[in-house]
């Protein structure tokens, strides 16, 4: 398709404006975290890492960070095991109700967080005797599974069954085929899925508020709780800046994986 010169210029301008809208606020957060001023007034009153130091030495921030990381790792681990198994089952075998099962797996990510949150909250408090850290992990796993499953399923479909048949043909039993062929060929897709799942869990707030046990504060919850306390504002800003960096990294790594896959045929 060829595009006229005027159209090209107009599209470029629109693209630039759209990007500016998204990224200027993020840049402001990052710049402000190094603001030397007491109240984060704009323009910044000089460069300083004092708020970063304050954030690092803040007990609440540190605890929330540890909680979020442990939660993310646990939810991701659950999602990796279940999501991979589900993808293998649905990608390799044809059975009655396969499409419905696939829909049921994907649905939690499409449901509004508040619905998932209320539903899980009801079940946990009614049948599991209340909210704990464990219920929080279960809740996060419901949507973390989806991204692992989607990544794994795409890879399973792209691989086809051929290399696994070749492996069986050469004398490998089922588990040998999984260890030597299936898993190595899925590894990069699973890593991508795991990073995305961790990222999802790390910045989740709605489902978390409904399913976290008493006294459990994740980093996003901490931000929410401290957002409107004027003396905490600079520290909240630092935490937000930190979250920006932590969220960008997995996406960047995942993109590197997928472009490496396109060149090297699924080899990580």
């Amino acid at each position: 398709m060829t595009t006229g010169r005027g159209t090209k210029v107009a599209l470029s301008i629109f693209a630039v404006i759209a990007f500016l809208f998204v990224y200027i606020p993020l840049a402001v957060v990052l710049i402000n975290s190094f603001n030397a001023g007491e109240t984060l007034s704009w323009p910044p009153q000089g460069f300083s890492v004092r708020w970063w130091e304050a954030a690092v030495s803040n007990e609440g921030v540190r605890e929330a960070l540890v909680t979020s990381v442990v939660l993310g790792i646990c939810a991701t681990a659950v999602a990796l095991v279940l999501g991979t198994l589900a993808a293998l089952a649905l990608g390799r075998y044809n059975f009655f109700g396969r499409d419905s099962v696939s829909l049921l797996i994907i649905l939690p990510i499409a449901l509004p967080g508040i619905v998932t949150g209320i539903a899980l909250n009801n079940v946990f408090t009614t049948f599991l005797g209340g909210l704990t850290f464990f219920t929080l992990i279960v809740a996060h796993s419901t949507f973390c599974i989806v991204v692992v499953y989607n990544n794994a399923l795409a890879r399973v479909r792209r691989l086809g069954g051929n290399v696994e048949e070749a492996s069986a043909d050469l004398g490998a039993r089922g588990w040998q085929t999984f260890v030597h062929v299936t898993f190595p060929l899925m590894r990069s897709a699973l890593a991508a899925g795991a990073l995305l799942a961790f990222g999802l869990s790390f910045d989740e707030i709605i489902v978390t508020t409904f399913t976290a046990g008493p006294g459990i504060t994740t980093l996003p919850i901490w931000i929410y709780q401290n957002l409107f306390r004027p003396n905490q504002a600079p520290i909240v800003n630092v935490v937000a800046a930190f979250l920006v960096i932590v969220s960008i990294l997995p996406i960047y790594i995942v993109q590197r994986f997928s472009s490496a896959d396109e060149r090297g045929g699924g080899v990580m």
Binding site: N162, V163, A166, S167, A168, D169, L170, L185, G265
Partner: peptide
């Protein structure tokens, strides 16, 4: 008898080499 216990080997149409 499952494929891995049969004394036959196959050359596949698309070769099915292990890419990794």
């Amino acid at each position: 008898v499952p494929p891995y216990s049969r004394d036959v080997n196959t050359v596949f149409q698309d070769y099915a080499l292990f890419p990794h």
